[in-house]
């Protein structure tokens, strides 16, 4: 009996630290942001800007820099968050949302899956704060709310960190002490001293994580904001197309990290070839002359996806 008791004690001494250690590791892994400020701090890329000012300046002009606010002059994305809440979440009988206070991360996921993927690392209190700021900006034009919403974005640490690996069983999980690029090496940043190669940094699939495949079936209520990657795979590739998203939107356009689409001259000049043939003539039916013109418009889509597409 004594031996049995001793065994339990020994077992306890071994297991308890393991459990505690496991709990600590788990706690570290699931440590989530409680406020917008905390979430912004978790993905703070200000140290990147010091050494990569050109990429930063380019990125600031892109919609990635205002991913839940939208275009600077309209805030259209923030307005669509509100529409989603009013016309979607509050109207659907089984969403669990009757009032704004009911909204959590799982509800905003309809939008945040792409517009703010790091919201997965935040608690419901952050979702609540986002909702309050969306309504303050859309309903009252609140400047402070606008700034708060604009602090949430797709910055360096999303594409070069969190989303740099898609196949985690094959390539592992993104390391917190590394930034991901096209090669391995050392990185002059004490918080992230490593550069690791992301095998998809120049592949369309990196962008396809958000510029997507159609309905997001992993969501409780699938949405279909983006179908671009599906369009690329299923319509462009079968036609013999060989460009990646990055080839056109970053390199050939010369825009770099200022990735643009339909509002950019650089992109629209590359997108279409348009030929117009026009001819005037007179057709005759007996004594009745019919003056007319024929206009033929040929539009060739040279992009790597249907136009328009999202």
């Amino acid at each position: 009996m004594k031996l049995l008791k001793k065994s339990f004690v020994l077992l306890g001494l071994t297991v308890v630290p393991l459990l505690l250690s496991g709990t600590r590791i788990q706690a570290e892994e699931i440590k989530k942001a409680k406020t917008i400020a905390e979430l912004v701090a978790m993905y703070d890329s200000s140290s990147c800007h010091e050494c990569h000012p050109e990429a930063h300046e380019q990125w600031q002009k892109s919609l990635h820099a205002r991913s839940i606010f939208g275009p600077e002059n309209t805030g259209r994305t923030a307005a669509t968050f509100k529409t989603t809440i009013e016309n979607g979440l509050k109207e659907w009988p089984y969403s669990g949302v009757k009032k704004n206070e009911d909204i959590g991360v799982r509800h905003l996921r309809l939008c945040s899956k792409c517009h703010l993927p790091q919201l997965e690392e935040a608690e419901d209190s952050v979702a609540q704060e986002i909702v309050k700021n969306v309504y303050a900006f859309v309903d009252e034009g609140d400047e402070k709310a606008k700034k708060t919403l604009q602090s949430l974005n797709i910055d360096c640490l999303i594409c070069h960190g969190r989303n740099a690996i898609v196949h985690k069983w094959t390539d592992g999980t993104p390391q917190k002490d590394a930034v991901y690029g096209t090669t391995d090496g050392k990185h002059d940043d004490p918080d992230r001293p490593l550069i690791k190669q992301s095998k998809i940094m120049k592949e369309s699939i990196l962008c396809g994580q958000c510029h997507g495949m159609g309905p997001n079936f992993e969501l409780e209520n699938p949405t279909q904001c983006a179908t671009l990657y599906a369009g690329h795979l299923l319509t462009y590739i079968p036609e013999g197309g060989g460009e990646t998203c990055q080839n056109c939107h970053m390199e050939k356009s010369g825009l770099g990290h200022n990735m643009q689409s339909y509002r950019s001259k650089e992109m629209t000049n590359m997108a279409l070839d348009v030929e117009v043939e026009a001819k005037a003539y007179q057709w005759r039916d007996g004594t009745i002359m019919t003056p007319a013109a024929t206009v033929i418009v040929d539009i060739k889509n040279k992009a790597g996806h249907p136009i328009p597409d999202g």
Partner: peptide
């Protein structure tokens, strides 16, 4: 929508 790498033609009689 306009499919990629294809030409779409429209004809107008005015």
């Amino acid at each position: 929508s306009l499919p990629p790498l294809r030409t779409t033609q429209e004809k107008f009689e005015i």
